[in-house]
């Protein structure tokens, strides 16, 4: 058994793993909305404010 078979096997296994990751990402709906996440990631920076943990809401 030559080393090339080992290398091929490893490379294909890794490629297939990435492929499965892609399929799962699509399935979970990550590709359904390609705009909102780009806005969402900008929010956290602007929220750095010492907050008193008062999230009580009057109804």
């Amino acid at each position: 058994m030559s080393v090339i078979y080992v290398l091929l096997a490893i490379s294909i296994v890794i490629a297939v793993l990435f492929f499965i990751a892609f399929i799962r990402a699509v399935k979970s709906g990550q590709y359904d909305d390609d705009y909102t996440p780009s806005v969402r990631m900008l929010f956290d920076d602007e929220l750095v404010k010492p907050k008193t943990n008062k999230t009580i809401k009057k109804n």
Partner: peptide, 27 residues
């Protein structure tokens, strides 16, 4: 606008019984 996304994803601050809210801006 981005304000809309922000406020709607922070609904849990208005009512803690809302555990998660996620906006799809395109739709």
């Amino acid at each position: 606008c981005s304000s809309c996304i922000w406020i709607l994803e922070n609904l849990n601050k208005l009512n803690p019984n809302i555990t998660l809210s996620q906006v799809n801006f395109g739709k």
